[in-house]
Design a protein around this nucleic acid. Structure first.
Ligand SMILES: Nc1ccn([C@H]2C[C@H](O)[C@@H](COP(=O)(O)OP(=O)(O)OP(=O)(O)O)O2)c(=O)n1
Ligand SMILES: [Mg+2]
Length: 1148
DNA sequence: ATCCTCCCCTAC
DNA sequence: TAAGGTAGGGGAGGAT
């Protein structure tokens, strides 16, 4: 028996017993004064104990049967917390309201325990409330043993004492609830079915240890269970964990078994690459968690020797694409983001069109609908298997034990199957479960119809997910009621409610008949109410939660039923004795806020009363972009890990570009197999139990370059020095986002090109000048060409040219903004130069024993962190200064040499182009074009799209049906940036699909969106039409973005285009397209002036940027020179003029 | 007090 | 076999 524990308890007991109310009047009632939260809790505890003394003294007649006992009650109990408290205290026991880790209880009273709590309390005697009740009844202290809490299958003892101390340090929370490991993933899944050799019985604490006969609990998902293994090396999944690794220290302390990472296994050999940091000592200590003598790398090598395994793990270069293609969660997230963007657009248009001006009377009643497909994936799946209707059905990738069930129908749910459950558990409770495959395109189709129907409802729409949306129909309802929504006229309210029901009814049937799947609708006076009403509405029904029923209805829900209250919050609340929502009402707001935090506490308090002030439709700008993979990660050596990180960065880059942003902070997240986790998790290629680590860098200047991201991320990975074989998950995230400013080049790549060209005429394999990164990270392969994203994307490849025109975003650069930029940058640069370049901080205990970051000792900010665009935008002198700075600091860098040159070089300052020009464009459009167009568009520019000659061609041209994975690279950021947002999304989506889709189910969002520009207004959508991914060719050549001044937009676009390709010249196709366009302007639009203006504008740009001497030094890598481009335009205009029979134009 | 950084948590 | 992603809210605790 833990003497420590008892000692502690004794002292507590003593304190409790001796405490007398009068003794200290002072401090415990003093409010804040000093001390923080901890102090507050301390006072509170003392205060409560005072009350205990009071109770005790007033119950002198009770037998002190609980003397020596200190009880803490956890969670919701049958005799209430208050009753138990009274019983215990009045019978001589001590009572602890809170477990603070410093004082200990002798017993924990609980009806049931969550795995988390179970782990937390594993050292206590955990008993049911009946123990107290029965003891009182019996007038003696009954043996606690008979009242042990055993439910939920899991042993409350589990590991309990064994390592006591050590384990405790790393595993035990100091804070009352939650986290037993500083950062364990899925901590919820405790060592549940540790039944393996794991929970070896421990001697020494007989009375607390008695093997708990765990009843066969409901299937519990755990990363410790033993699923079938498909590996040849089915080693015993046993865990000989005696090392309780917590942080670096733990690792440190272990005697280092010299087990070189790079083992004899050839496959494991780490390429000459990164020899330094990482490879050396891969935390040898971690091996003990596995079978003897096998490093995790060796294990993985063995594992991957099976080609099928290999193919399905990160080692496969196509893994990322393949994985994301099949990942339902990835799809859900992607869909959500897309929907959000589209709905924002829709809302904007709607509000613009003066319609739907909601007056939003403050105190008025609201009517909100929450619409949601019933078991969405499963319902769609059943459409194709009508025979299974009525039978239990689930959607999953396979029938293996670790396959996750995305969705199951209600028949299956009746048997206990739940969404998100592992197959193993599902089959246990429902052996006749029918498992159907995913059909992502079908979900998109259904969703499109769903949203189409919803958007036809007059109201404000907010997407929640692919199968779920909120609609504020207050306007319609109040109108029907004939009041302003504040009065309490019964007639009005009745009519309003009837209207809401009617709308919902109609909507449900519409969606049902469109999709064949049923939806349910919850209606309430706010989002909360609508949401909780929805659960009652399901399946295939609707329910309106009317005001007079709100309190009762909500009160009877479980707190976990409230939105935003999940496992953890639910547990915290349960600790407060709150299980049902109505219980919340017994608590003061203060209690809630002090236990849960100010916002959360207040929110729960409100929710308990049916209050939710959140409005529908308020969505904001994105704050982060990330990509992660936590499945299939099995590396054999460090270079594989690094390659993978770079791939992820490439993916991240792609996503950043899609969203037209770059970011200043890059974070790497890694999951590492926990020390006590087996090499083979229960879930096939899953991550198993892991610890996670994060590290981030502040980039001096926002970037989205694959190259920069890759280098930084790899550097961070190295600094962790985690044995590659133990990696289980990797993610990269960009935060501190900034809009990509097309003005300054449209994209990194674009300007990189410029820089490159100036640097060396050799366009291919051009050393990325901006890449002086090499400077600080002495690179192995200078010649590393292929690896670099940018070159792939733009420099070396012709961008995808959907419209026959590749183009740049018009410049929106506010001259003033640009003018201000330098200072900003200047200070940043200076600051960087002086401070440590990297603001790295690894929060999580850094696993490696190794001193991290040895190589990156440069005090300079890697030049790579400078955004070339920004550099280019600097005034010449300042730029030179900055570059000088780098040059000095880095005398050596061979590859850095070329870098500065091009930058500083430009005798023809590119600046003038930006600085002096802006005023020229006459149109007022200049600044933020749309004061009105807010939201997303704040980021976007006024875009235009050249009319394509023939839509059909697009299809073919769009890309040969090459199943190649990386087709995304074919879309250049410039091109994307130049597209109107809706079109851009469409293109991207189409692209994504192309990459992602196995079979061509061309489900293009905006099928018949033509009537409106809305992607959604698509009713029936003829099948073939779906292939059309761009709006139909307009009557006359025009800009798709009507709201803006055509000429100025055109000029902006031309300017950006020119800016991006100043050095290498335009692509012939672009020139042709523009030429064709101007001709059409002359001929079709009959606006000669405009055509001439555009042409002259380009002439001016070209002239202005002409190198001082030796014209044309820069060839035309892209095949055409700017002079030729100008001539093309002139020729086109002339042709048009001639066609119209007008007098020739003089361009001089 | 208020901000910032680093997480945890939640939802689909 | 299996595809355990991802963005945003917000709390804890340190910096300002
Ligand atoms: N853990 C989860 C939860 C959901 N989903 C997917 C499949 C679901 O069909 C879809 C929608 O989620 P819902 O929460 O709306 O669940 P269902 O629509 O399946 O059921 P219902 O809405 O009837 O409760 O998201 C998933 O893949 N994994
Ligand atoms: Mg649903």
């Amino acid at each position: 028996m833990g003497s420590l524990l008892d000692e502690k308890s004794n002292s507590v007991r003593k304190r409790i017993e001796n405490h007398v109310f009068e003794d200290e009047v002072g401090e415990e009632y003093e409010a804040s004064a000093f001390g923080g939260f901890g102090d507050y809790m301390r006072r509170k505890k003392i205060k409560l104990q005072n009350l205990d003394a009071e109770i005790r003294s007033s119950s002198a007649d009770c037998l002190p049967i609980f003397r020596g006992v200190v009880v803490h009650v956890n969670g919701y109990t049958q005799p209430s917390l208050q009753d138990l408290h009274r019983m215990i205290v009045s019978h001589g026991g001590g009572f602890l309201q809170y477990l603070d880790g410093k004082t200990s209880a002798t017993h924990i009273v609980a009806s049931s325990l969550t795995p988390k709590k179970r782990e937390e309390f594993r050292r206590y005697r955990i008993v049911k409330p009946a123990w107290v009740v029965e003891s009182v009844k019996a007038k003696r202290l009954l043996p606690w043993d008979a009242f042990r809490v055993v439910d939920e299958g899991q042993n409350q003892k589990v590991l309990k004492f064994d390592n006591g101390r050590v384990l405790n340090e790393s595993n035990t929370p100091q804070s009352s609830y939650r986290d037993q490991t500083n950062s364990s993933w899925y901590t919820s899944q405790l060592k549940a079915s540790t039944q393996a050799q794991n929970g070896r019985p421990i001697s020494g604490t007989p009375d607390m240890d008695p093997a708990v006969d765990q009843a066969v609990a409901p299937p519990t998902q755990s990363d410790y269970g033993d699923f079938p293994s498909f590996t040849s090396l089915d080693e015993p999944n046993e865990i000989s964990n005696k090392s309780a690794r917590s942080g670096p220290e733990a690792v440190e302390e272990r005697p280092r078994t010299p087990t070189p990472l790079v083992h004899s296994l050839e496959a494991i050999h780490t390429p000459s690459k990164s020899p330094p940091v990482v490879s050396q000592a891969p935390s040898p200590s971690r091996r003990d968690a596995s079978a003897p003598e096998v490093t995790s790398e060796e294990y993985n090598a063995q594992l991957l020797s099976d080609p099928r395994m290999r193919n399905n793990s990160v080692v496969n270069p196509e893994f990322i694409q393949q994985y994301y293609r099949e990942s339902r969660l990835h799809h859900l997230s992607t869909w959500k983001a897309e929907l959000k963007a589209q709905l924002q657009l829709a809302a904007k248009e709607k509000s613009q069109s003066r319609l739907s001006r909601r007056k939003q009377i403050p105190g008025a009643r609201r009517y909100i609908m929450h619409v949601d497909f019933d078991c969405f994936f499963a319902a769609v799946a059943v459409l194709k298997h009508p025979d299974l209707d009525g039978k239990p059905v689930a959607v999953a990738h396979g029938t293996g034990s670790g396959s996750e069930i995305a969705s199951c129908n209600y028949t299956a749910r009746a048997k206990g199957v739940k969404n998100g459950m592992w197959m193993k558990g599902a089959l246990q409770s429902c052996p006749d479960l029918n498992v159907l495959p995913y059909d992502f395109p079908a979900y998109e189709d259904a969703s499109r119809k769903f949203y189409s129907a919803i958007l036809s409802v007059e109201g404000i729409v907010q997407s929640v997910s692919i199968d779920e949306a909120l609609v504020d129909i207050t306007g319609q309802c109040l109108e029907a009621g004939g009041s302003d929504g504040r009065g309490v006229s019964e007639g009005s309210i009745y009519r309003e409610q009837a209207k809401a029901d009617e709308i919902a009814e109609r909507l449900r049937h519409a969606i049902r008949s469109e999709t064949g799947c049923s939806v349910s609708v919850g209606i309430g006076g706010n989002i909360l109410q609508a949401k909780v009403a929805l659960r009652k509405a399901k399946p295939a029904g609707q329910f309106q939660l009317k005001p007079d029923m709100v309190l009762e209805f909500i009160g009877n829900l479980t707190v976990q039923d409230l939105p935003g209250v999940g496992y953890s919050l639910g547990a915290k609340l349960e600790e407060l004795g709150i299980k049902f929502v109505k219980d919340v009402r017994d608590q003061s707001k203060e209690r809630l806020t002090s236990a849960l935090g100010p916002k959360t506490g207040a929110r729960i308090w409100d929710y308990a009363r049916g209050i939710d002030r959140t409005e529908v439709g308020n969505e904001v700008m994105r704050k982060s972009v990330s990509a992660e993979v936590n499945w299939g990660i099995r590396f054999v050596n460090q270079s594989q890990a690094e390659d993978f990180v770079r791939s992820l960065c490439e993916e991240l880059h792609r996503r950043l570009v899609e969203n037209l942003v770059k970011g200043k902070q890059l974070t790497l997240k890694v999951m590492r197999r926990s020390a006590d986790a087996p090499l083979e998790p229960v879930k096939h290629l899953g991550h198993g139990k892991c610890d996670t680590f994060n590290k981030s860098v502040l980039l001096g200047v926002a970037s989205n370059s694959t190259d920069v991201l890759g280098k930084e991320a790899v550097s961070m990975l190295k600094s962790f020095a985690i044995s590659p074989g133990d990696l289980r998950g990797i993610g990269v995230q960009m935060t501190k986002l900034e809009p990509l400013k097309p003005a300054t080049g449209g994209s990194i790549e674009a300007s990189q090109k410029q820089l490159n060209f100036k640097a060396s005429p050799a366009r291919k394999k051009a050393q990325h000048t901006h890449d002086p990164d090499d400077l600080e990270s002495p690179r192995k392969e200078e010649t590393d060409t292929v690896n670099y994203g940018p070159s792939l994307n733009d420099s070396n490849q012709k961008p995808l040219n959907i419209s026959g025109t590749q183009f740049i975003m018009p410049s929106q650069t506010d001259p003033q903004v640009v003018a201000e930029l330098p200072n900003d940058i200047r200070s940043k640069l200076v600051a960087q130069g002086k401070q440590a370049p990297r603001g790295e901080r690894s929060t999580s205990p850094c696993p490696p024993p190794r001193r991290s970051q040895p190589p990156v000792a440069a005090e300079l900010p890697p030049q790579s962190q400078l955004d070339p665009d920004t550099l280019a935008a600097l005034p010449e002198d300042l730029r030179a200064e900055v570059l000088d700075y780098y040059n000095q600091r880095d005398p050596a860098g061979p590859q850095t040499a070329p870098a500065p040159a091009p930058l500083a070089a430009p005798p023809p300052p590119p600046n003038p182009l930006r600085f002096k020009k802006p005023t020229s464009p006459p149109k007022k459009k200049r600044g933020r074009p749309s004061t009105k167009s807010t939201g997303t568009t704040t980021l976007r520019q006024a875009n235009f799209l050249f009319p394509r000659p023939a839509t059909p061609t697009l299809s073919e041209e769009r890309r040969e049906p090459s199943p190649q994975p990386d087709t995304a690279d074919e879309v250049s950021p410039e091109f994307l940036a130049a597209l109107p947002e809706d079109i851009r999304r469409e293109v991207l989506e189409e692209h994504r699909r192309a990459r992602t889709r196995q079979r061509p189910s061309s489900a293009t969002q905006r099928t018949a969106g033509q009537q409106q520009t809305r992607p959604f207004g698509a009713p029936p959508a003829p099948a073939q039409e779906r292939r059309l991914r761009l709006p139909p060719l307009p009557e006359r050549p025009t800009f798709t973005s009507q709201k803006l001044s055509a000429l100025s937009d055109l000029r902006d676009a031309v300017q950006s285009w020119h800016a991006a390709f100043t050095e290498e010249g335009p692509f012939a196709e672009d020139v042709e397209a523009l030429a064709l366009y101007v001709k059409r302007v002359v001929v079709d639009e009959r606006d000669l002036d405009k055509a001439v203006s555009v042409t002259k504008w380009l002439m001016w740009l070209v002239e202005d940027s002409r190198p001082t001497e030796a014209g044309g030094q820069r060839g035309s890598p892209n095949g055409v020179s700017w002079d030729e481009a100008v001539r093309s335009l002139q020729r086109s205009v002339a042709e048009g003029v001639e066609e119209r029979g007008l007098p020739p134009v003089d361009f001089s």
